[in-house]
């Protein structure tokens, strides 16, 4: 058993900056201040869970007892390729087109 997590510090402006980076969101200084306060308020409310004794309680990820679900091994038509690609912002030779993944564009 891992030890109980340490008392969690209140979410900071730096935490929000980091989380925004992970979530691929760019925030202004004002937005960072506002979001930090708002996220802290929600997490403060969740602190009422700290009072509960949760030792030995199994976590629930899902309301149904899920197992792998297999369909019959029969070929069926998928969605139309051209219709799917028509919705993409940029396409080249039947592929989704993206800017360079590494480095700046030439």
């Amino acid at each position: 058993m891992a030890p109980d997590p340490p008392e969690v510090a209140r979410i900071s402006r730096d935490d929000v900056t980091h989380v925004a980076l992970l979530a691929r969101l760019s925030l202004s200084d004002d937005e960072l201040d506002e979001f930090t306060g708002q996220l802290a308020a929600v997490l403060d409310h969740a602190a009422d869970l700290d009072a509960l004794d949760l030792d030995g309680v199994e976590p629930t990820a899902h309301p149904l007892p899920l197992r792998n679900v297999f369909r019959a091994d029969v070929p069926v038509a998928g969605v139309d390729r051209d219709e799917v690609l028509a919705a993409a912002p940029a396409v080249e030779e039947h592929r989704f087109k993206v800017p360079p993944v590494l480095g700046e564009s030439p």
Binding site: R24, P100, L102
Partner: peptide, 19 residues
Amino acid sequence: DGVRYGLRVEAGNAVDMNT
């Protein structure tokens, strides 16, 4: 993420475009 459907705001590389 701006790749397969919906909005894309162009940028010089993929991560900047995503963001």
